[in-house]
Simulated scan of single mutants.
Amino acid sequence: MSHHLPDTTARPGADGAAPAGTATDPDAPTDPGTEGLAAPVPVAARKDSVPAGTADAASAPAQWAAEFAGTALLVFAGLGTGMFATEVIDSALGFGLGLVAAMVAFGHVSGGHFNPAVTLAAVVAGRTPAKAAIGCVVAQVLGALAAAGVLWSVLVTLLDSSTTAQVLGAVSNGFGENSTSQAGWTTVLLVEFVATALFALVVLGSTAPRANAVLAPVAIGAALAFLLTITAPFDGGSLNPARSTGAAVVAGAGHLGQLWLFWVAPLLGGLVAGLVHRSAALSRPRRGTDALPATGTAPAGSAPQVQER
């Protein structure tokens, strides 16, 4: 005589939703309505309970304020560590840890770009609206200038003007006579372009809807730290036009005259990263999910589908 075990498999309710406590598809985005670059933190990891599908996008002024504060924190940590440390790796680690802290603190408000090159990559990849990019870039530059200005104000109370300029110049970006290895502008252009493209790809990949959002700040901060360790001997390590602008303004005319390269190279890197991410179909819809009808409404009983932003 055969014995049948009771069927304990959870079945969807009448409305097609799984009962509470039922395991869900691990590939499913956790917060489909969230706008911005960074993937939302999974609901289970949040202190609050945000229902799936609830949009928590901040207003434009709030996003600009978050980009300003996050970029200021990043630049203050990186430049400050470079000023008071004796090894290049310390400065790179300062930027990496500063970025992790900024993303955790402010990333959920603005998406956590803190870098014009990353913002451009997100726009090209279709992850951020173009109309929002200008305000974010302005906020990033102002945040970098504010952080560099605070460091200058501290140094000028301790050192004479010429020594202050030397200290600030040491943490600024440059080529030729402003490079510790005397690297020419073509070498620096190539190094910054490649490093920024790799960094932007890490940002776009680790913040994709199917990526582990909890580990994204760690991955991005670690990528920035080791890429700066590689680029620092050539040009002081930038990968961020806002960071270079803040340092150059307080360092003086010698660095301001070379600032153009540290906008052109990172922006080109961000552009290429965005194009690669988009054209290589690195962002794909969930497996087994049918396309939405032309009306934009999901079939009855189906899980909501989210396009990567």
Rank of each mutant, 00 (worst) to 15 (best):
L5C: 13
T8C: 09
T9F: 13
A10Y: 07
A10C: 11
G21M: 02
T22R: 11
D25M: 02
T30G: 15
T34E: 13
P40E: 01
R46E: 04
A55N: 15
S59Q: 12
A62Y: 06
Q63Y: 06
W64T: 11
L73G: 10
T81G: 11
F84L: 12
T86N: 14
D90Y: 13
F95I: 04
G98I: 00
A101C: 14
A102L: 03
S110H: 04
G111E: 00
G126C: 08
R127G: 14
R127I: 08
P129A: 04
P129T: 06
A132N: 09
A133L: 03
I134F: 15
I134G: 13
G135R: 00
V137F: 04
V137D: 13
Q140C: 07
Q140H: 08
Q140S: 05
Q140D: 08
G149R: 02
V150W: 06
L155Y: 05
L155W: 02
Q166E: 15
V167M: 10
G169P: 05
A170R: 05
E177K: 07
Q182D: 09
Q182N: 09
A183D: 06
W185E: 09
V191E: 10
E192R: 03
V194P: 11
V203K: 00
N212Q: 15
L215D: 10
L215A: 15
A216M: 10
A216Q: 14
V218D: 13
A219C: 14
A222G: 11
A222I: 14
L224K: 07
A225C: 09
I230T: 11
A232M: 08
A232G: 08
F234Y: 15
D235W: 01
D235G: 06
G237M: 00
L239V: 07
N240H: 07
N240L: 01
A242Q: 03
R243F: 13
S244L: 04
V249S: 03
V249H: 02
G254A: 09
G254F: 00
H255E: 02
G270Y: 01
A273S: 06
G274H: 02
L282F: 09
S283Q: 08
R284V: 13
R284P: 08
D290K: 14
G296F: 06
S302P: 09
A303G: 09
A303F: 06
V306A: 12
